[in-house]
């Protein structure tokens, strides 16, 4: 316990200073959320590269939570879906259902190139399409995988902070 305390004292603050707020192309639905966005992450068929990056985005260094974003367990609690990967045939219906389960106003963020336009998996037999083919997408975050900064940047567009 003492070791942990010493560690806390010596390491101090890990979070990097917040960069400037992104350009204000906030999706219209996000305005109603007013600085508080709960996010449900959906892996629609990802290679898990994006997941690693999302993990870092909410880690101490990038600290996505400081902008008012938080990951939650249930789509009922969520305001936004963070969808990664191409949408595989098996995940198309669950994705639709998840979207339906979110109370309005709601947003969908497509994270990574696969989610945006199927990336390298385009045309593969198991792929139902990009996220936009299944549910309406409000925000896209590019990259394969996208850098944590890009993800945080995207989240800040939602929270407006």
């Amino acid at each position: 316990m003492l070791r942990l305390w010493r560690k806390i004292r010596t390491v101090g603050r890990v979070a990097e200073p917040a960069p400037l707020p992104p350009a204000t192309d906030q999706p219209p639905a996000a305005a109603a959320l007013a600085g508080s966005v709960q996010i449900r992450h959906v892996d629609a068929g990802s290679c898990n590269g994006c997941e690693v990056e999302i993990g870092s985005a909410f880690g101490p260094v990038y600290d996505g939570e400081r902008y008012g974003a938080r990951l939650v367990a249930s789509p009922r609690h969520a305001d936004a879906l963070l969808v990664t990967g191409v949408v595989t045939r098996n995940m198309a219906e669950p994705l639709r259902r998840t979207f339906e389960a979110v109370p309005a106003p709601k947003l969908v963020v497509a994270v990574g190139d696969c989610a945006r336009n199927c990336g390298v998996f385009a045309g593969a037999y198991g792929v139902a399409g990009a996220v936009g083919d299944i549910v309406p997408v409000d925000l896209e975050i590019a990259g394969c995988p996208p850098r944590p900064e890009a993800i945080v940047d995207g989240l800040r567009k939602l929270t407006g902070r």
Binding site: S74, P75, E93, P94
Partner: peptide
């Protein structure tokens, strides 16, 4: 502000 109650299927993890 949002007065309407919506009926939805139970959250079954999408399954």
């Amino acid at each position: 502000t949002h007065r309407v109650r919506r009926e939805a299927r139970l959250w079954d993890c999408g399954g």
